[in-house]
Design a protein around this nucleic acid. Structure first.
Length: 352
DNA sequence: TGGGGTCCT
DNA sequence: AGGACCC
C-alpha cells in the first residue's frame, strides 16, 4: 500500500504461491483471514486485489528502516519478525519524569477500564511510569506516520509478554496501556494456553495430554506436574507466563545472525531444473551477502521432501564451514554445492 | 499453507 | 542436525 496508495481503499491480499499470507483491514472486513487459500479468498471476495509477496526484499528493507528509526529513541530495540519491535523505554521514562513539564495524561486506551473501578493502590510509581510510556508510544507512532508513512499498534506494559498481549486489544492503528490491577483480567481473557507467546503448537499438545487447556488451568496446576513433563526450567517459565510474568529482557537485535533464501520448488522435474533454481537462490544470497559486508562462516542447505501422498515431511539440512578462499575466488556455482560435496553426502530430492 | 527469522538441545 | 518458537 505504501508503494501503491490506490490499493489502500481496496481489499488487498499478499500472495505467496496458493496462499494469501496476509491482507489489509479492508479485506479482513470482507471476511478474509491470513494464511487462507487463494480460492477461498476469491470466493468470499471476488474483487480482492492480489499482490505477489514471494520476494521479501521490499518488506525486509522497510522493516529495517523502521527498526533503525526506533533506534534513534533508544538502543534497546528487539526485533520480532519483520513487523514487530520491542522497546525498553525505561531510561526515557526516567528522564521524562524528571522533566517538570511532563503531564499525567494517558494517551490511547487503558485496558479493562470501565469494568471495575480503579482503586489506585500503587505506591511504587508504576502508574506514572506507564502513563509516560503511553506518551512516548504516541510520540513515536506519530513520528513513524509522519516520516515513514507507517501506522501501527502499540502496547505499553512492564514486560514483553504483556506489552505484546495488550497491543492486540485495540486493533488497527491504536495503542493500549496495561495497568497492573488488570493483569489477571488480560491473561484470563486469552482462554487457551496456545494464545501465550512462547507456548507453541507442540507445547500446547503436551499440556493438553496433561489435561491442561486453559490459562487458568495452567495457573492452578501443581508445579511438579509440569516439571515431570517439561523439566524444571520450562515448567517455571510457563507457570510465570500464565500469570503474566515475563523475566526476559529486551535484547538489542543488531545485525542478522543468518541470511537465507527459500523456494518451495513447485513443479521441478529434472536435475537441470534443480541446479538452476538453487543457482538462482544462491545468486540472491550472494547479492545480499555483499550488501551485508560480512562473510559467512557456515553455509547450509535445507530441504523438505514430498512423500508419495504429496505430504510435506520434516526438514533435512546439511551444513559445513566455508573457508574464506572459496569466496575470494567468487565462483558462484562452486559455492552452491560446496557444503554438500565437502561432506561427500548426496541429498536426494524428490519433488512432485 | 510461505518465506523468512531466533535460540536451545 | 534437528527441534522449538516467532512473524
Amino acid at each position: 500500500m505504501l508503494r501503491n496508495p490506490e490499493l489502500r481503499t481496496k481489499p488487498l491480499g499478499i500472495q505467496q504461491k496458493n496462499i494469501v499470507v496476509t491482507c489489509n483491514y479492508v479485506a479482513r472486513e470482507r471476511g478474509i483471514s491470513k494464511l487462507s487459500y487463494i480460492k477461498d479468498a476469491e470466493k468470499k471476495c471476488p474483487d480482492i486485489v492480489l499482490v505477489n509477496g514471494e520476494d521479501l526484499t521490499h518488506y525486509r528493507e522497510m522493516s529495517y528502516k523502521i527498526t533503525n528509526f526506533l533506534l534513534k529513541y533508544t538502543p534497546k530495540v528487539e526485533r520480532l519478525g519483520f513487523d514487530e519491535n520491542f522497546l525498553d523505554v525505561s531510561d526515557m521514562v526516567r528522564t521524562r519524569l524528571n522533566d517538570p513539564s511532563t503531564k499525567e495524561e494517558v494517551k490511547g486506551h487503558i485496558y479493562g477500564q470501565g469494568q471495575k473501578d480503579d482503586a489506585d493502590s500503587c505506591t511504587c510509581g508504576c502508574h506514572a511510569r506507564l502513563t509516560v510510556g503511553t506518551q512516548i508510544a504516541a510520540d513515536i507512532r506519530s513520528a513513524l506516520q509522519e516520516e515513514l508513512g507507517i501506522s501501527c499498534c502499540a502496547g505499553i506494559a512492564w514486560n514483553k509478554l504483556l506489552s505484546k498481549l495488550v497491543a492486540g486489544t485495540h486493533k488497527p492503528n491504536q495503542q493500549t496501556v496495561l495497568f497492573p490491577e488488570h493483569t489477571f483480567e488480560l491473561m484470563l481473557s486469552l482462554e487457551a494456553v496456545r494464545a501465550i507467546p512462547g507456548i507453541g503448537h507442540s507445547t500446547a499438545k503436551r499440556l493438553a495430554s496433561l489435561g491442561i487447556q486453559t490459562i487458568s488451568q495452567l495457573q492452578e496446576v501443581d508445579q511438579s506436574v509440569l516439571t515431570g513433563e517439561f523439566g524444571n526450567s520450562m515448567a517455571q517459565t510457563m507457570k510465570l507466563l500464565s500469570c503474566g510474568s515475563d523475566q526476559s529482557p529486551v535484547v538489542t537485535t543488531g545485525q542478522a545472525q543468518s541470511i537465507s533464501d527459500e523456494d518451495s520448488f513447485r513443479k521441478c522435474q529434472d536435475v537441470e531444473d534443480v541446479k538452476n533454481r538453487i543457482g538462482g537462490l544462491l545468486d540472491n544470497l550472494l547479492k545480499r551477502l555483499e550488501e551485508d559486508g560480512r562473510l559467512p562462516g557456515i553455509i547450509r542447505l535445507t530441504l523438505r521432501k514430498l512423500d508419495k501422498e504429496g505430504q510435506w515431511s520434516k526438514r533435512e539440512s546439511r551444513q559445513c564451514r566455508v573457508p574464506s578462499h572459496v569466496f575470494a575466488l567468487g565462483n558462484n556455482k562452486t559455492i552452491a554445492w560446496y557444503c554438500v560435496l565437502s561432506n561427500n553426502k548426496t541429498i536426494q530430492m524428490k519433488m512432485k
